[in-house]
């Protein structure tokens, strides 16, 4: 597979602040790639460099086979961008802004525009100043999804959308992938990342700390289980992959590596289960581990307070690249 985006060792400073400190990013053609990191990690800076708005101090960036700085205009005809904080022209209506942005990219699909306006329930006749944050984002999303482009760069595009609209957004991203388009999705919403992304890169302090397919990353996560049992459960602590076990009478609370869930459930079943809550595996834990470390803290999964987590090939991969 060819790469839609390939970035290696990117550095960018603003005065004394090092926004990017050797960032790597590889996005395959046709995939939806999640781009995650805490605030200030350098996501937007990376995206702005990819858009040719900022010039990198050092490092290589290739976008759709071109140089994002030198070939900006040609490349931009093949991509659509949705900023995280959409500001619109106060006296242009939403419909005008959609058409303008689409036309400046080289035209947009009228039928799809109409359909998207309906699906996002967006009134295109309101003036820019009258839209709420969510509706401004919808304007930028409709303009992006209605454009005929190879690559979509979405910078936290759903932070103002309600759950219904979030669902519409997810459908649209899936449709884009089905058409073979590449999507770079910067997001804080883990459910969204889990639902949409084929692969994920997590960055912190301007560096990539984790990258891999969702399956690989899910492997690193745990399911939490809360159960009320018919009797005392013995030997749970001895099972492989069980963490943070708490037993209070008949009540049990524990975390288990997702691939070891089966054995735990069998043991609980042997005791007899009165009630059971199992929180499905999320990436949250993994993200939190990366998010919570201070900017100068250790990279990767070296947090000593956390129980040993299988780091696998991924972390080794990241390690090697550093």
């Amino acid at each position: 597979m060819t790469k839609a985006i390939s970035v290696a060792g990117l550095h960018k400073s603003f005065g004394r602040t090092h926004a990017l400190d050797g960032l790597d990013l590889a996005v395959e053609e046709g995939e939806v790639h999640g781009f995650l990191g805490p605030n200030g990690a350098g996501k937007s800076t990376t995206i702005r460099i990819l858009l040719g708005l900022l010039r990198a101090d050092r490092g290589a960036a290739v976008l759709l086979g071109g140089d994002p700085w030198r070939d900006a205009v040609t490349l931009h005809r093949r991509l659509a961008y949705v900023p995280g904080d959409v500001t619109l022209w106060r006296n242009l209506s939403g419909g005008e802004a959609i058409d303008l942005l689409g036309r400046l990219r080289g035209g947009l699909d009228e039928a799809r525009r109409r359909q998207l306006l309906e699906r996002f329930e967006l009134d295109p006749t309101k003036k820019g100043r009258a839209y709420s944050k969510g509706n401004r984002q919808k304007v930028a999303l409709v303009a992006a999804f209605a454009s005929d482009v190879d690559l979509l760069i979405l910078d936290e595009p759903t932070s103002g959308l309600d759950p219904l609209m979030e669902e519409v957004f997810r459908e649209c991203v899936r449709e884009e992938r089905d058409r073979g388009r590449t999507v770079l999705l910067s997001s804080h919403i883990l459910g969204e990342v889990e639902a949409l992304c084929d692969r994920v890169s997590i960055i912190r302090g301007g560096r990539t700390v984790e990258t891999g397919s969702l399956g690989e990353l899910r492997h690193l996560t745990r399911t939490s289980v809360t159960a009320e049992l018919a009797g005392r459960a013995d030997g749970l602590g001895g099972l492989p992959g069980v963490h943070d076990l708490e037993v209070r009478g008949d009540h049990v609370r524990l975390q288990v590596d997702t691939d070891k869930l089966d054995a735990v459930l069998r043991r609980l079943g042997e005791t007899g289960v009165r009630s059971l809550t199992s929180t499905p595996p999320t990436l949250e834990e993994l993200f939190l581990r990366h998010y919570e470390n201070g900017p100068d803290g250790p990279d990767g999964p070296a947090d000593p307070a956390a129980p040993a987590v299988a780091t696998g090939a991924l972390a080794a991969d990241a390690e090697a690249r550093r």
Partner: peptide, 21 residues
């Protein structure tokens, strides 16, 4: 508040058109 047009006119298709507007 007065609503605006649902679609952009013919002239709003270039950077110059936007600047003029």
């Amino acid at each position: 508040p007065r609503p605006g047009p649902a679609a952009a006119g013919r002239r709003l298709r270039t950077a110059q058109g936007l600047a003029w507007r």
